[in-house]
Amino acid sequence: MADPVVTAVRLGKTYGTGDVAVSALAGIDLEIESGTFVVLSGPSGSGKTTLLNLVGAIDVPTEGSITVDGVRLDGLDGEERTRFRREHVGFVFQFFNLIPTLTALENVQLIAEMTGRDGEGPAREALEAVGIGDRADRFPAALSGGEQQRVAIARAVAKRPRVLLADEPTGSLDLATGRVVLGVLRRLNRERAMTVLLVTHNTAIAEMADRVIRLRDGRIVSDVSNPAPVGADRLEW
C-alpha cells in the first residue's frame, strides 16, 4: 500500500458551543493513499464539505488530528495554513470564481506565480493539461461553463499540488460538460499521480472513483474501494 497522503485520527469538528453546538464531523478515522481518486458523498449536512475543508486547511478541527502530505494541520496558525494551502493543495469549487477582468491565462498565472512559477509557461502548460490551451487569451465571459470550470481546474493544478480538492465541480454543469470536467480530473489524477478528493451529491460519479466514502451525520457510514472504475465519458445521470 502506498504512503497515505491524508491521515485523520478521531477527527472532529463542532460548530458553536453549549446548547447550540452542532457536530459536523464526529471523530472519524481515515487514511487516503497517494494518487487515489476519492469520492466523498452523502446527503446535505453529512459532513463531507467539512471534511474537505479540514483536509484543505480551510478550517481547523476541534478534536483529533489530521496530517496531509506530511504536514500536521491541527495546531497550525493562520499564516502556516495559508502556506500549506499554497504549497500542497489545490481547490476546485462549484462556482468557478474566475476573475472576470483577467483572461484564462492570467487567472491561472496569478496562482502559479504564488508558488514561484513565474511567467506564462506553467500557466499555459496547466491550460493545455485541461484541454483549453486555445482559449488562453479569452476572458471568462467568453467561455462556456465547462471551459470556465476547466480554467478553474488549471488554476488549481498550476502550482502542482499533491492533493486536489473539488467541491461539487459539476454542480453547475450539464451532463456532457460535467463528463468533460470529470475526465480532466481523472486524467490529472493518473498522469500526475495527484490525489483527488471530490465531494458530490451525485452518486453516479462514484462509479469513476478508486474509492467511495459515504458520510452521514458526521460519520463514515461506508468506505468502499472500486476495483473497476469506469471512464468519465461513460457516466450517466
Binding site: 499564516e79 495559508t82 494551502r85 504549497e87 481547490f91 470564481n97 496569478l110 504564488m114 502550482k159
Partner: peptide, 16 residues
C-alpha cells in the same frame, strides 16, 4: 462583489 474570488485566492494560498 469579489467575495467568492477572494475566498478562492485565499483557498489557493494567497496570504492575507
Amino acid at each position: 462583489a469579489q467575495r467568492a474570488i477572494i475566498g478562492t485566492l485565499r483557498a489557493e494560498g494567497m496570504s492575507r
